[in-house]
């Protein structure tokens, strides 16, 4: 190992280990994939990592808006894949972070226009240049999902504490490569509703999905405001949600941290879930 490292550092072009390509997916739309991608990416970059966020939602892009970069997008993913622009021309540097970049999706094209092999090659190229390649997956499990997953080696599954979201997440986990160990972010938890038995708890959700828990994000109206303004909460030192994203980034970067403590007891809605997922629940 050490020898290989020394050899590499002596070479004229420094060889660095390939970055990790992580797809952020959910099955169900509107559960917070794009918000998660923007915030986790921002938090990783704030730690000094080189991060590129890839919007794989061709035709319905939004990652540019959440980052507040929509007026800086000149070229997009398909321009790069079709060699109409170079990667350097298409990468948009974040306003706030020197080491955070966006590769936007095409807005007026179709997901079927993306060539899967070219997408895989592009992610490989990005891994050579960045520590983290976060791929924001479209909703659903059609072609756009398949292309978003194709180049990744790891998945973060975003799920809200709702029966329909859990069911869709379970379906998506089943479609990911079997040797992956996807990690779970439970998003938009309202602890007071869980206490009243009106929302699934984190344990309820994970009794079905049984995935390593990467983080829990509470529902906060500030997220809507931040999204509309294009300012990720991950940089807000006073925000609880921002802190939660920074913890997730630390875990992704390999820091050993205790499990999040937002786990009120099981609710009883689980009865319904259990019958739905009888085999696994």
């Amino acid at each position: 190992m050490m020898e290989a490292f020394e050899e590499a550092s002596q070479a004229s072009v420094p060889v660095r280990p390939l970055g990790r390509a992580i797809v952020v997916t959910s099955g169900k739309g509107g559960v917070g994939k794009t918000t998660t991608t923007a915030n986790v990416g921002t938090a990783l970059a704030a730690r000094g990592a080189r991060v590129v966020l890839v919007d794989a939602d061709v035709g319905l892009r939004n990652l540019d808006i959440v980052l507040g970069l929509e007026s800086r997008v000149k070229f997009h993913l398909l321009d790069v894949l079709e060699e109409k622009a170079t990667l350097d021309e298409a990468l948009v540097r974040d306003k706030r972070s020197e080491t955070l970049f966006l590769l936007a999706a095409a807005q007026t094209r179709e997901k079927e226009d993306v060539d899967t092999a070219a997408m895989v090659a592009l992610v490989e190229t990005l891994r050579a240049r960045f520590d983290y390649v976060l791929i924001d997956c479209p909703a659903g499990i059609e072609m756009g999902f398949k292309n978003a997953v194709a180049g990744a080696q790891h998945a973060i599954v975003v799920c809200t504490p709702e029966v329909s979201s859990v069911r869709d997440a379970d379906r998506v986990v089943g479609l990911l490569p079997t040797d992956w160990r996807p990690e779970l972010i439970v998003n938009r938890l309202r602890p007071q509703l869980v206490k009243k038995g009106k929302m699934l708890s984190v344990d309820d959700v994970n009794a079905i999905l049984r995935l390593p828990l990467l983080g829990v994000i509470a529902d906060e109206p500030n997220v809507i405001v931040a999204t509309n303004r294009g300012e990720p909460l991950a940089l807000d030192a006073t925000s609880v949600t921002g802190a939660a994203y920074r913890t997730i980034a630390a875990k992704i970067a390999g820091e050993k941290l205790p499990a999040p403590d937002v786990r009120p007891p099981s609710t009883g809605i689980i009865g319904k879930l259990g019958s739905l997922f009888g085999k696994r629940g």
Binding site: G29, G30, G59, G140, G144
Partner: peptide, 29 residues
């Protein structure tokens, strides 16, 4: 969700549409 094949077939049988959106920039776009 989306505008792929599933969207096109869902629309194929319809003669009217209800578009649901939330007051958020991304949903409206």
């Amino acid at each position: 969700a989306g505008i792929e094949h599933g969207f096109r077939s869902a629309v194929a049988g319809a003669t009217e549409a209800i578009v649901v959106t939330t007051p958020e920039v991304s949903a409206i776009r």
